[in-house]
Design a protein around this nucleic acid. Structure first.
Lengths: 162, 162
DNA sequence: AGACTTGGTTTTATATTGCAACCAAATTGT
DNA sequence: ACAATTTGGTTGCAATATAAAACCAAGTCT
């Protein structure tokens, strides 16, 4: 454990853009797959390692980084073991929309010949979820070309009346 | 230009998981920021380079990879220049939900002291967008704890009736 | 024509990742 | 109780990826 744990090649943390700032925390190579596994119930070091086939030192490093970012937290193991386990914090659980959006895109554009390995459902009803998609203020899914981007603080351009 | 353009340390492309397969295409360090810039209107090499402060060789490599993945395409420049420009394909444009989800999470959990740099709006109405969030079949935003994950082909567990 | 910009490539240095070996504490089997 | 195995790491080394800087050819501007 050195003083300077992990020194990234180039960090996005000083950028103002929220996308960059998010990627700075979860954008390294294995991070989002670790979070995926955590969402699906993985808690222990061994679970992550077996599921991912990741090198142990890399896993250690990623887990520490995620704990430091308060996306995961270490806690006493629920099964009574003396080892600790890793659990998603509320901050980490809030990454679900990102995970679902990645999954949905992969299903559509990069599907494995054997189909997807996981599916998602509504625990309350057992039904499928709606698509993760940009929606208008009224909740209707919108055409991607209608998504406008503007620098913060700038007045919103008038809608084209054509 | 070698035959084996870029050989990654470890590729996710043989995994069945759609999340992994997506990350294999857009999960490297700069990819999603390049895509963000493309969504905000960047077309030319210089735009990406200036906006990102990325090393030129790395940018070349990432752009080629994204073109190869059919997320970007090279096309004659719209401004009449003899140079080519990079444009999002439909496959690339479909990454918008991921970009928006990343941005939204960053706004909430990793905000820059000066606030976000970009905002999103509905070009049709000028209004803000709804949150990118898992929704039930009826379109209502749901509690993250109600998002269920199951191996594909498995019967959906019965909703708890407690 | 000459100067500058664009879109790269090459080289070299540094950072990250994977792999294998090793280890101590916890757990399991007998 | 004791030995064997598993867990959760750490360390060192080799392979790979990224960054920075120099260089270059073709395109564009004056």
């Amino acid at each position: 454990m050195s003083i300077c744990e992990t020194m990234k090649t180039k960090s996005f943390s000083d950028m103002q853009c929220s996308i960059a700032r998010t990627l700075d925390l979860v954008g390294s190579w294995w991070s989002l797959l670790i979070i995926r596994d955590a969402m699906m119930g993985a808690r222990r070091f061994k679970h992550f390692q077996r599921s991912l086939g990741i090198a142990k030192n890399t896993l250690t490093s990623r887990l520490n980084q995620l704990v430091e970012s308060e996306i995961l937290e270490r806690a006493a193991a629920a099964d009574g073991s003396a080892y600790e386990e890793y659990r998603l914090t509320p901050k980490g659980r809030d990454l679900a929309p990102i995970i679902l959006a990645l999954s949905q895109w992969g299903d559509k554009w990069a599907a494995h010949p054997d189909g997807p390995s996981f599916e998602y459902f509504d625990r309350q009803t057992g039904e499928d979820l709606s698509a993760i998609w940009p929606r208008r203020a009224d909740g209707e899914a919108m055409d991607l070309r209608d998504v406008g981007y503007k620098p913060a603080g700038t007045p919103t351009p008038q809608p084209a009346d054509s």
